[in-house]
Design a protein around this nucleic acid. Structure first.
Length: 269
DNA sequence: ACATATTCCTGGGGGC
DNA sequence: TGCCCCCAGGAATATG
């Protein structure tokens, strides 16, 4: 599922192609997850010139030269892929864009994803709801976010987009493993050393995942339809019952904060 | 101000 | 082989 590293990978790929290009047409194949609804969406974005492709949290943002924008949240199974002009739309495709000489398809098997056309004010408001970008602050600043509330468990803090932006289930579990912290720990039980280790682990995991172009354990593909390679270095996520790569103890899967949660019962205290 | 439950949805896996 | 049931999960929303 697309988290910060996956969306950042797509952002870089799209920005290289779509910057300074104009949206020539929008074909809506399936309505319901866009605002404004239906043809009003197509009408709003047709003719807009892309100033840059941006990202905030897990949100892909097409910033237009007039200050308006399109935001796409891929949720669990969304894909945004550059295709050629002869492309035949598939079952799960929702929209096909013609942008300068390029063609772009947005698809979403489980239909959780959203796409919105926003005024500059609406975008500003939306982005203000997110916590800081973990790769744009110092590890000490990131560590400070894990101080309170003391009763919140550390996994739900990592997943909460208002605490920090962009971490989802895969990288939360991987960062907790790397910092040897059990996902059920309350923030109030973490030492200053735990918080700093966790902050550094979050940053390391996200950076490495961007280098490897994300994780494709489920449905994620990048803007060229390619899989990410982070899956090969996963240490706990989706490794239930497999031996811990550090100590050999079988990895445990439980549910924390309504999410499947993987950890090593020996390494993570 | 926290946790927990529910909702959206489809493909895939387990059970028989 | 083929049902049926259940489950994954981001985040908005409702409820405790």
């Amino acid at each position: 599922m697309p988290e910060l590293p996956e969306v950042e990978t797509i952002r870089r790929q799209l920005n290289a192609k779509l910057k300074n290009q104009t949206i020539k047409s929008v074909r809506i194949l399936k309505t319901g997850r866009e605002t404004p609804h239906g043809q009003a969406f197509a009408k709003a974005v047709t003719g807009k010139k892309i100033k840059m492709i941006d990202r905030r949290a897990k949100l892909l943002i097409w910033r237009f030269t007039d200050g308006s924008s399109v935001t796409i949240h891929l949720k669990l199974t969304g894909r945004v892929i550059l295709v050629d002009k002869k492309y035949q739309p598939g079952k799960h495709d929702r929209m096909v864009f013609e942008i300068g000489p390029y063609h772009l398809v947005w698809s979403d098997m489980r239909q959780f994803g959203t796409i919105n056309f926003l005024s500059s004010e609406a975008l500003k408001k939306k982005l203000s709801e997110y916590g800081p970008e973990p790769l744009e602050i110092k590890s000490e600043q990131l560590a400070a976010l894990f101080k309170s509330p003391k009763t919140r468990n550390v996994k739900s803090a990592l997943l909460n987009q208002e605490v920090l932006a962009g971490v989802g289930n895969i990288y939360a579990d991987e960062a907790l493993f790397r910092s040897k912290i059990r996902p059920t720990r309350k923030l109030g039980s973490l030492t200053a050393d735990d918080r700093l280790k966790l902050a550094k682990a979050v940053q390391e995991v996200l950076k490495q995942a961007i280098e490897l172009k994300g994780t494709s354990s489920q449905d994620y593909l990048d803007a060229y339809g390619q899989e990410g390679k982070f899956e090969k270095v996963l240490r706990v996520y989706q490794r239930k019952g497999l031996p811990c790569k550090v100590c050999g103890t079988p990895i445990v899967r439980t549910v924390v904060a309504q999410r499947g949660t993987h950890y090593c019962p020996n390494c993570q205290k």
